[in-house]
Amino acid sequence: MKFSCWSFLQLQASRARLFKEYKEVQREKSADPDIQLVCDDSNIFKWTALIKGPSETPYEGGVFQLAFAVPEQYPLQPPQVRFLTKIFHPNVHFKTGEICLDILKNAWSPAWTLQSVCRAIIALMAHPEPDSPLNCDSGNLLRSGDLRGFQSMAKMYTRLAAMPKKG
């Protein structure tokens, strides 16, 4: 009884917060042209985002889809975010799309929002951290100084998976 009561309060709090974020996203739609954040029609705990690959990176020109699963303890607990679009990046798992980013783990705080998480992921795309790799192949290329090898692999996957097919 006590437990269900607590989760009900949490659920209300997280719903209210997500609704505020939803309104903010609608209001600020044009402020951040690189991010398009959309809430699921029937479930406010499920969101998807389309983010543009940052310029002057091998991801430039690509559009990457992210899936958000928001826990009931949000915003005390971080959302779970993963890439749905295949991406070659040291801190993204090549198969599952899982992202290694401190703010999605132990450095999370309610000061972050779904929108600012998207910005942090774009920043991670531009500044990979090869010393904590989820994709070892990609991390090893960077750590061994083979920037060219890394860029051509990353660019190839951007073309294959993140760009609209021509013709």
């Binding site: 709090a13 209210a16 917060r17 505020k20 974020e21 903010e24 915003p75 309610p110 000061a111 972050w112 929002t113």
Partner: peptide
Amino acid sequence: GYADFTFEDF
């Protein structure tokens, strides 16, 4: 520059 909705519930 903190958005109100990030802290007002607390």
